[in-house]
Design a protein around this nucleic acid. Structure first.
Length: 800
RNA sequence: GCGGGUAUGGCGGAAUUGGUAGACGCGCUAGAUUCAGGUUCUAGUGAGGGUUCCUUCAUGAAGGUUCAAGUCCUUUUACCCGCACCA
């Protein structure tokens, strides 16, 4: 048979679609497998080979599961709200709905051309009313439960996109979407109280099977730290400065305090601060600094002493100065610290610069040279002196502080609450009404979805105002509570909203009464295996785990954790080894590969090119190598004859079935494919194989290259689809050869190889090895010491 | 700065977890087939030395443990990815 991929692939894609073999069954008595890939953002650029690699991994796993008899849910959808579409719509003066529909149609046809076994009856589109109704519903529930609040704060603002960004979206001081510099701006912000779920998100990681570095990144993101709060009295007032520290044991070493430039205490005592102008000047200077300047100047500490206010160290009653400095931030802890220059590098730098006392309280370092952050014996610390463990010192100090009523244990997180609103058109409207008498009122559930009004002009207002504010029929409404005139919230949700629960909708995508039926959720959840990019493990995954934990708490979902297992694929780099980008012109378009070589070649290549989890450059020549392999597979149809087994291929077949079966589970697709290539080399060497054997071969290859395998399966006279055929089994006994090749070493150096029966005992094997001429040559006239025998592997004779 | 990871032929990568380093693929060399080849087939292909066969060296670098190290330990270099003044 010739590998006529153009006709074969089209033919089988149509047959699969007609037969609906990839539709998940509603038969909830069968064992299930829910494989999830990150649904794409349907950009105008179309699909990227990276998408193909991302989906091919679980595609293979899911197809194998189906062949193993599982009821498989392997869905796809589109995360279609978002800025790129909106910006494109503005630029081309096309409605984002039209842009989105075009892009989704394009993605759909591209995905179908690759032959992915998605259940196309369950496609979700986050911009559809039937979907975003439930996104709004979840938000409303959070509003009811007090997890939504509004505050006026300094926010990360992108002057180019004209939109407020969460901390997650503005890492490194750059806008995640357009990479412009972020500025701080005072704004009304809707927050989701994700910090309330910090511990649940952290401890929930114990119950899931995520890649170790995925877990680590999430742990770091949540950033839990255990320490203590303490109050430092301000001399001559009833006030105190509350600090957070992880090192209460060092409190006798506190020689000054530092507070954030924005700390409210400054304003409160402005009248008695003699240098208030200098403080305000410093504060203004800090506000102007970009993120870049801040990070570049880490080592050069700046600050101003507050003249007129001093604090009292609660440990020893000593009076200490207070400074403001931008190395202390309002957003973490209490915005104030106790400074222990002897044992904290930042405090040390600051003390050196400002000539402040440095008092050693832990022995072990040289505080003339640098801060000492290690362990050691406590000194200069009154009741702590002599203690050598940090744990004991902390306990004693906390006891002391508690006795005085000025301190207690506490926990802090790096994670911040989630800034949830965007001043943009192409997003889910936030279902809240502002009533002059009732305040903020949720849009009644029965009025959901709150539809996004149709508009012609979607540019954000100059002051960063949402485009929806221009639609009077949308803005003006009546208060659901009192019936009086009210105004709707005009901001929309961030793109992360729709993607925070899409995997739930797949379980029951057409349900009009709830986000998904209880039965469907109980059957399908949790997602058995979720694969996606490393770039989504902190933001998307943390957000969606948060929503899921919340839904669990209100009884809307049956599992605490949404994803049982999480893996990640590595990037595909350009042929030049650089990250693919339009500007570098090194982007590979999957369509071109399908046109030239076929979908099967593309699929096999992206899995064969390297270790699935690492970044690998694209290589056109290697693609042709995969083409050659599949052409040779097609050629097997001319060779296959008869039934049963070919003796000299039998063990190779069992070994390959075993290797492919196991490697798929470990996502070692490259070695699985290599094993099949090896087998085909063996078959061509043998020059023969049976039709039964060819049937086995196409079934293990089917998840990787399904089109060609279906064609051969049909040619072999089978009814039904290879994709629905049974996954081949292997016989462990037949994976072991009757004889094994031993490496025979003298003093650890290979001197000969020897084929011996697999069960031969140590003495006979060593005796056989000693007959080898090469062994005799190297042992002659020497004293034999140890004789090492590793069954099935090695014989090593040690001589002197 | 802190945390994590990686380093193997000309290239992408294998290596049963301490047991014949370089599977598989690309590329390259030679030969055959073909009107032609970015076709197909056969053989070879880590490096050096003697040339049917041997032999020495070789997994970023330097030490160590072991009968045996790509794999374990110590030191070190380079690169990649997170986080970044987190108190």
């Amino acid at each position: 048979m010739k590998h006529d991929f153009i006709n074969i692939e089209k033919k089988w894609q149509e047959k699969w679609e007609d037969a609906g073999i990839f539709h998940a069954s509603e038969d909830h008595s069968k064992k299930k497998f829910y494989g999830l890939v990150e649904f794409p953002y349907p950009s105008g650029a179309g699909m990227h080979v990276g998408h193909i690699k991302a989906y091919s991994g679980l595609e293979v796993v899911s197809r194998k599961r189906r062949m193993q008899g599982y009821n498989v849910l392997f869905p796809i959808g589109f995360d279609a709200y978002g800025l790129p579409t909106e910006n494109y719509a503005i630029k081309t003066n096309t409605h984002p709905r039209v842009v989105t529909d075009t892009n989704i149609a394009n993605f759909t046809s591209q995905l179908k051309r690759v032959g992915f076994a998605f259940d196309w009856t369950r496609v979700v589109d986050t911009t559809e009313e039937g979907y975003y109704k439930w996104t709004q519903w979840i938000f409303r529930k959070m509003f009811d439960e007090g997890l939504v609040f509004r505050a006026t704060t300094l926010v990360n603002y992108c002057p180019s996109c004209k939109v407020v960004l969460s901390n997650e979206d503005s890492q490194g001081g750059k806008c995640d979407i357009c990479h412009s510099d972020i500025v701080q701006k005072s704004k009304d912000v809707w927050y989701l109280r994700i910090t309330e779920y910090a511990d649940k998100l952290l401890f929930g990681l114990d119950d899931v099977d995520y890649l170790p570095n995925v877990k680590l990144q999430q742990e770091n993101w949540i950033g839990r730290s255990e320490g203590a709060f303490a109050n430092f009295a301000i001399k001559g007032t009833d006030d105190s400065l509350r600090i957070y520290t992880t090192r209460p044991d060092t409190m006798f070493g506190v020689t000054f305090m530092v507070i954030a430039p924005e700390h409210p205490i400054i304003e409160k005592y402005a009248a008695q601060i003699s240098n208030i102008d200098a403080l305000n000047a410093y504060k203004e200077e800090c506000a102007k600094k970009t993120e870049f300047e801040r990070t570049q100047l880490v080592k050069d500490k700046t600050g101003v002493r507050i003249e007129g206010l001093t604090a009292i160290n609660p440990a020893n009653g000593k009076e200490i100065p207070i400074f403001i400095s931008d190395y202390v931030m309002m957003g973490y802890g209490t915005g104030a610290i106790m400074a222990v220059p002897a044992h904290d590098e930042r405090d040390y730098d600051f003390a050196k610069k400002f000539g402040i006392d440095i008092i050693e309280v832990i022995k072990g370092g040289n505080i003339e040279e640098a801060a000492y952050t290690g362990d050691g014996e406590m000194v200069n610390s009154e009741f702590l002196n002599g203690i050598t463990t940090k744990k004991e010192a902390i306990a004693k100090m906390l006891e002391f502080l508690a006795g005085k009523g000025v301190g207690e244990r506490g926990v802090q997180y790096k994670m911040k609450d989630w800034a949830f609103n965007r001043q943009r058109y192409w997003g889910e409207p936030i279902p809240i009404v502002h009533c002059p008498t009732c305040g903020m009122v949720g849009v009644p559930y029965e009025e959901l979805p709150l539809r996004l009004p149709n508009m012609d002009q979607f540019e954000p207002g100059e002051g960063g105002e949402s485009p929806l504010a221009k639609v009077e029929s949308f803005v003006n409404c009546t208060c659901p509570k009192c019936g009086g005139a009210a105004k709707r919230e005009t901001d929309t949700m961030p793109q992360w909203a729709g993607s925070s629960w899409y995997f739930l909708r797949y379980c029951d995508p057409h349900n009009e009464n709830m986000l998904a039926s209880k039965e469907a959720l109980e059957y399908w959840l949790p997602v058995d295996w979720y694969n996606g990019g490393m770039e989504h493990v902190t933001r998307h995954m943390i957000y969606s785990r948060f929503w899921h934990h919340f839904l669990y708490d209100i009884g809307a979902v049956p599992t605490k954790e949404p994803y049982a297992k999480r893996t990640a694929q590595g990037l595909i780099l350009g042929p030049d080894g650089d990250k693919m980008s339009k500007s570098k012109g090194n982007v590979v378009n999957p369509n071109d590969v399908v046109d030239e070589y076929g979908a099967d070649v593309l699929r096999v290549y992206v899995l064969f090119m390297g270790e699935y989890g690492s970044a690998t450059p694209w290589n056109d020549s290697s693609v042709r190598g995969v083409k050659r392999f599949l052409d040779r597979v097609a050629g097997l149809t001319d060779m296959a004859q008869g039934e049963g087994v070919t003796p000299k291929l039998e063990s190779a077949f069992h070994k390959t079935v075993k290797k492919v079966s196991q490697d798929i589970e470990d996502m070692k697709f490259n070695t699985a494919i290599a094993a099949m290539m090896s087998l085909i080399n063996d078959i061509y060497d043998a020059g023969t194989l049976t039709r039964d054997e060819l049937g086995i071969f196409v079934r293990i290859l089917c998840p990787f290259a399904p089109h060609i395998c279906e064609e051969i399966w049909e040619l072999l006279g089978h009814e039904g689809f290879a994709s629905a055929a049974e996954w081949p089994a292997w016989d462990e006994a037949k994976t072991v050869d009757a004889t094994v090749t031993y490496a025979v070493q003298v003093n650890g150096k290979l001197r000969a190889t020897l084929d011996l029966p697999k069960d031969m005992d140590k003495d006979s094997a060593i005796a056989a090895a000693k007959q080898e001429p090469k062994v005799i040559q190297f042992t002659e006239g020497k004293t034999v010491g140890k004789e090492i025998f590793v069954p099935g592997k090695i014989i090593n004779i040690v001589v002197k």
